[in-house]
């Protein structure tokens, strides 16, 4: 994505973690002070962890999201293993106090495929895939995580027809989902380009990503909000609610 006037940059901290299904993996982390809005597990594709990830993590930090970023390879990981790896990331985020509903999973390329698989298997706040691959390769069951999939029209891995078919299959899923196809751009539309369509796709996809997270990832309660929760009568979850 393109950025014009970056804020002071946060350098991610790097460490190696043992992720179920993926083995020892390098992890990049951005922690925030105060009360962050939520957390994101960022699944990179290819060499994204070293190149684009720091920029994306900083951009997410501007919207109040802490991140853990990993590179799950170029698609060699089986979906079940990818889901297991995401589960391990959730456990790491849990150590920082993040519950599953307070976490969004964002994946690029092969990482997008992993995010799609996680959306079908886990109950998270939100899931977003940018240019995921082989989305029709296995049955999809979005049961509890709302998923946003964004594709370039000229993506060599995924045709527009298969995206439309995916949208049709997901329409009957219990959980809300949305697919978007950007015209005139390839799979790397999110990196931005000088031409109008490339610029529009990068800008719009980032805007959608942030809005998708903000509308779905549960915010962390502030200390005063926690006090309020304790004071409230648990038998009356919605004192202003209608008589039903």
């Amino acid at each position: 994505m393109e950025r014009e006037a970056p804020l002071p940059r946060i350098e991610p901290r790097h460490f190696v973690a043992e992720l179920e299904g993926a083995g020892p993996v390098e992890v990049a982390e951005v922690r925030l002070t105060g009360i962050p809005r939520g957390a994101v597990a960022l699944l990179c594709g290819g060499d994204g962890l070293a190149t684009q990830a720091p920029e994306v993590m900083n951009a997410l930090a501007e919207h109040g999201y802490e991140t853990l970023a990993v590179d799950l390879g170029s698609g060699s990981l089986a979906r079940a293993d990818a889901v297991a790896a995401v589960r391990s990331l959730l456990a790491l985020l849990g150590e920082r106090g993040w519950g599953a509903e307070q976490v969004g999973v964002v994946g690029y390329g092969a990482g997008g495929t992993a995010a799609f698989a996680a959306a079908g298997a886990l109950s998270l706040g939100a899931a977003i895939s940018l240019s995921p691959r082989d989305v029709l390769a296995e049955p999809v069951a979005l049961t509890s995580t709302p998923w946003l999939g964004m594709f370039g029209e000229h993506d060599e891995h995924t045709t527009p027809e298969s995206v439309v078919e995916l949208g049709r299959r997901l329409a009957d899923a219990p959980c809300f989902s949305r697919v978007v196809i950007y015209p005139g751009v390839g799979a790397d539309y999110f990196r931005g380009a000088a031409d109008a369509l490339g610029h529009a796709a990068a800008f719009d996809s980032w805007q959608r990503l942030v809005e998708w997270l903000n509308a779905r990832v549960s915010p962390r309660l502030s200390p005063y909000a926690e006090l309020w929760e304790l004071r409230r009568d648990p038998s009356d979850p919605s004192p202003e609610g209608s008589v039903r």
Binding site: S222, L227, W228, S238, G241
Partner: peptide, 22 residues
């Protein structure tokens, strides 16, 4: 469900603030 889940800078309201739902 109509519940207030987040108030930016809620420390300014104090700990006894009654958080209204919709």
């Amino acid at each position: 469900s109509g519940k207030l889940v987040s108030v930016p800078g809620d420390t300014s309201y104090g700990p006894g603030f009654q958080r209204p739902g919709l």
